Amino acid sequence: MGLKHRTDSSFADIFNPRGGRITTVNGFNLPILKWLQLSAERGVLYNNALYAPHWNINAHSIVYITRGNGRIQIVSENGEAIFDDRVQEGQVITVPQNHVVLKKAGRQGFEWISFKTNANAQISQLAGRVSVLRGLPVDVLANSFGISREEASRLKQNRQEVSVFSPRRGSQQ
């Protein structure tokens, strides 16, 4: 028995024409996943683009790199880097629940598929327009990080993209 689900840019949940796209399938839009207690994410990042730092709230994930290369950083809930290295096509990485992960594409771009251990896996972001930091008051950020109110305000408003960031002009890997 075969099973297909479209994941091109017209069906992307997140799309940045200069950065890439993220498409998710879960128990709501592919009902068999509810029975399997899984969800999946397909990511495509263009040259030097970045998938903002985020963590899985309710799932572990297995990431399989399907094309290209890039860099993945994984940080534990205690702030310890547990993985920080270049990855390439054919590699598999495990990201535990509540660990922050960041993905950056190399020059050829970066594509992956992630399988998550929850039929409705949810993420929370640390950067971008819908980030946790954006929701905190400026004074809380300034006091937490020991920075000025102006720096805290810039930190909150730094990126307008949602979660796939296009590379800045002149960026190098």
Results as ranks from 00 to 15, higher is better:
residue 123 I to C: 03
residue 153 S to Y: 09
residue 173 Q to W: 13
residue 71 R to D: 13
residue 163 S to E: 03
residue 32 I to R: 04
residue 2 G to K: 14
residue 9 S to L: 06
residue 16 N to G: 02
residue 7 T to Y: 13
residue 1 M to I: 14
residue 99 H to P: 05
residue 121 A to N: 07
residue 89 E to Y: 07
residue 111 E to G: 08
residue 50 L to M: 11
residue 21 R to I: 13
residue 50 L to A: 00
residue 20 G to V: 07
residue 91 Q to K: 13
residue 156 K to G: 02
residue 8 D to N: 14
residue 108 Q to W: 04
residue 58 N to V: 05
residue 85 D to S: 15
residue 39 S to K: 02
residue 140 V to F: 11
residue 51 Y to G: 01
residue 173 Q to R: 14
residue 78 N to M: 09
residue 5 H to D: 11
residue 94 T to D: 13
residue 24 T to R: 04
residue 107 R to A: 12
residue 29 N to V: 13
residue 125 Q to R: 11
residue 81 A to I: 15
residue 72 I to W: 08
residue 32 I to L: 09
residue 44 V to S: 06
residue 122 Q to I: 13
residue 158 N to T: 14
residue 168 R to G: 10
residue 71 R to E: 14
residue 112 W to D: 01
residue 164 V to I: 07
residue 30 L to W: 01
residue 169 R to Y: 12
residue 134 R to P: 00
residue 48 N to Q: 15
residue 36 L to F: 10
residue 21 R to H: 14
residue 7 T to E: 09
residue 62 I to F: 08
residue 78 N to Y: 11
residue 109 G to C: 08
residue 173 Q to L: 15
residue 97 Q to Y: 05
residue 147 I to L: 10
residue 103 K to N: 12
residue 134 R to Q: 05
residue 137 P to K: 03
residue 10 S to V: 08
residue 71 R to S: 11
residue 113 I to H: 03
residue 68 G to I: 06
residue 106 G to E: 04
residue 170 G to Q: 05
residue 12 A to L: 08
residue 78 N to Q: 09
residue 110 F to Q: 01
residue 65 I to F: 07
residue 138 V to D: 10
residue 61 S to C: 10
residue 168 R to H: 13
residue 60 H to A: 06
residue 7 T to H: 08
residue 134 R to Y: 01
residue 90 G to Y: 09
residue 156 K to N: 00
residue 80 E to P: 06
residue 153 S to K: 10
residue 172 Q to R: 11
residue 12 A to G: 05
residue 109 G to T: 09
residue 39 S to R: 03
residue 62 I to R: 04
residue 30 L to D: 02
residue 56 N to D: 06
residue 116 K to W: 00
residue 172 Q to C: 04
